[in-house]
Computed example of a mutant assay.
Amino acid sequence: MWVGILHFLFLTNPLAKIVRHKIAETVVPTIVGLYFLILDVWGDEFDFIKDNLEDHKKVFFILVSFTVALLFYRGVGDFLDSKRIDDMLKLFSSLFFSIENIIGVKKSRFSETIATLDSVDDTFERITHPKKQIKAIISQANRHFVEILQLKRDAFDFTIMRKNPITDDWYYLLSDKAWQHTEPSILLEQNSSAAHCLRTGEKLFLPDKKFAAKNGEYYLSERDKRNDCLGSVFCKSYNIKTPTGKEQFIVTITTYGVSLCGRHDRRVIDSVESMLGEFALRIELELILFSLKEWLRTQKEIQEAAKEAEKKARKEAKQRQNTKNV
């Protein structure tokens, strides 16, 4: 919270942008220097200076004080900006390491499975495990949040909601935490981030839940209220087409009691959103594989049911024929 306030005071508010502009950096010291030069060199020659020397001293003192304050203000801003850059470099370095580990988990499973294949019939079923891979992604994201962002393990959560293609009811396909979550039906009926993403099909990152709730963009859960409504949320919906329809999912990454960044610094917001988007992108790939496996499983069940029905029909026809012959 305090970091966000400091960034706003020294980096992102309109005054800070003016002070940190190259023109201000050049013009203000130049004016003070020229004024001092005029007083020092031509002070005894011009009547308007000699006759008002005390006033000019006061003006010069004010200009010098203003310049010192300006340089101090800019110095604090430069320090915060350099620290922010260092934090972003550390953040993305950790992100790349996490992604490398995510890919490594999948690569290891593929390599181990390929070495033990003895037929081609169940190759896809054996080699792809979307839920396991999603859990591996969430595990790496947990490490990223805990080690780099210094968050407690219960300060964030990942959830994936799925729409049942048969009943059209939404349910939680996966969740990082075992605690009670707000029912999907309630979320999608309210002004929630999930409802917004489902309606627009766009991703959404809200750095400040409390502010977003006031603007009708977020639904505050009981857990949010127990954490003073502090936190950030990233949400994205997915519509994955299959040969016979589509699968729908909503991925949500949320923090409780602490925000990932302030809502004033656009560069930091974009960086954090990009980081969360990388994890969501890896999850999306697994959801595509999950959808394909579900479609194949359904088609297999339909084929088996058709075979059973055909077998039963032949058996009944044979029984009728035998009865007729008797």
Rank of each mutant, 00 (worst) to 15 (best):
I288Y: 13
R314L: 14
R314I: 12
H56W: 05
E100M: 06
P207R: 06
L296N: 12
S65M: 07
K203C: 09
V146F: 09
F10A: 02
G33M: 01
F92D: 06
R297E: 13
I114W: 11
V258T: 04
C197Q: 03
T244Y: 15
V41W: 12
K311C: 15
E125N: 09
K209E: 01
L289G: 11
K312D: 14
L70P: 00
A194F: 07
T255G: 11
R320Q: 14
L34M: 02
A313C: 10
D265Y: 04
D40K: 07
E189H: 10
D169H: 15
Q321C: 15
P184W: 00
L117Y: 05
V59P: 11
T159C: 07
G262V: 03
D208G: 05
I137D: 01
L151F: 00
P165Y: 01
F60P: 02
S237P: 02
S192G: 04
P130G: 01
R282M: 15
F92V: 02
S65Q: 08
Q140G: 06
R153V: 03
N142D: 02
H196C: 07
K107T: 06
G277V: 01
S94K: 07
Q180K: 12
R297K: 15
T242G: 04
K311L: 14
Q150T: 01
T167I: 03
V251Y: 01
F205S: 01
L230A: 02
A136W: 00
K90W: 12
V268A: 10
L95P: 01
D86C: 14
F124Y: 09
D121L: 12
Q140M: 07
E45G: 10
K214D: 10
K241L: 09
Y73N: 02
E54F: 13
E100W: 04
Q319G: 14
K90V: 11
W170D: 00
D40Q: 07
D168T: 04
A136F: 02
G201M: 05
D154L: 04
P14W: 01
T255A: 13
E310P: 10
S193E: 03
